[in-house]
Amino acid sequence: MTGTIARLRALDTCAVSDALDRHGIRGVLTGLAPLAADRQIAGRAVTVELGPPPADTAAAPGRHLGTAAVDASGPGDVIVVAHQGRTDCAGWGGLLSLAAAARGIDGVIIDGAARDLTEAATAGLAVYARTPTPVTARGRAVEHAWGETVEVAGITVAPGDLVLADPGGVVVIPAAHADEVLATAESITATEAVMARAIGAGVPVSDVMGKSYEELTDGNQ
Results as ranks from 00 to 15, higher is better:
146 W>L: 05
1 M>L: 14
69 A>R: 00
38 D>I: 08
137 A>Q: 02
78 V>E: 06
38 D>A: 05
132 P>S: 13
23 H>Q: 15
182 L>A: 00
220 N>D: 10
207 D>I: 14
122 T>L: 15
170 V>E: 02
71 D>P: 01
209 M>L: 15
134 P>S: 07
81 V>C: 14
166 D>P: 06
82 A>W: 13
44 R>G: 11
59 A>L: 01
176 A>R: 10
210 G>W: 06
182 L>N: 03
194 V>G: 07
214 E>A: 12
183 A>E: 11
181 V>A: 00
168 G>H: 10
62 G>D: 15
189 T>W: 11
91 G>E: 04
182 L>S: 05
77 D>P: 06
88 D>H: 08
65 L>W: 13
126 A>D: 02
195 M>S: 14
142 V>T: 11
156 T>C: 07
124 G>H: 13
46 V>H: 09
20 L>Y: 11
186 E>F: 11
156 T>N: 04
50 L>S: 00
60 A>L: 09
105 I>Q: 00
206 S>H: 14
5 I>Y: 00
176 A>I: 11
85 G>S: 03
103 R>E: 14
38 D>H: 15
41 I>P: 07
57 T>Q: 11
53 P>E: 04
145 A>D: 14
93 G>K: 00
26 R>V: 11
43 G>H: 10
82 A>L: 08
46 V>G: 08
91 G>R: 08
119 E>V: 02
198 A>P: 07
38 D>M: 12
172 V>T: 04
21 D>C: 06
57 T>R: 15
139 G>V: 03
208 V>P: 07
74 G>P: 09
174 P>I: 03
100 A>K: 09
184 T>D: 15
189 T>R: 08
213 Y>A: 14
172 V>H: 03
164 L>N: 03
99 A>P: 02
216 L>R: 15
188 I>V: 14
88 D>N: 06
44 R>W: 09
99 A>V: 03
45 A>D: 14
140 R>S: 07
164 L>Q: 05
60 A>D: 15
113 A>Y: 14
3 G>H: 08
180 E>Y: 04
131 T>R: 04
97 S>V: 05
92 W>I: 05
122 T>Y: 14
148 E>A: 04
207 D>Y: 13
27 G>M: 08
140 R>Q: 09
116 D>Y: 01
181 V>P: 11
19 A>V: 07
33 A>R: 00
78 V>H: 00
15 A>E: 11
30 T>A: 10
79 I>G: 03
69 A>H: 04
69 A>K: 00
17 S>D: 02
127 V>G: 12
219 G>D: 12
139 G>N: 08
29 L>Q: 11
35 L>K: 05
196 A>N: 04
90 A>I: 04
124 G>K: 06
180 E>W: 13
159 P>L: 15
69 A>P: 03
82 A>G: 05
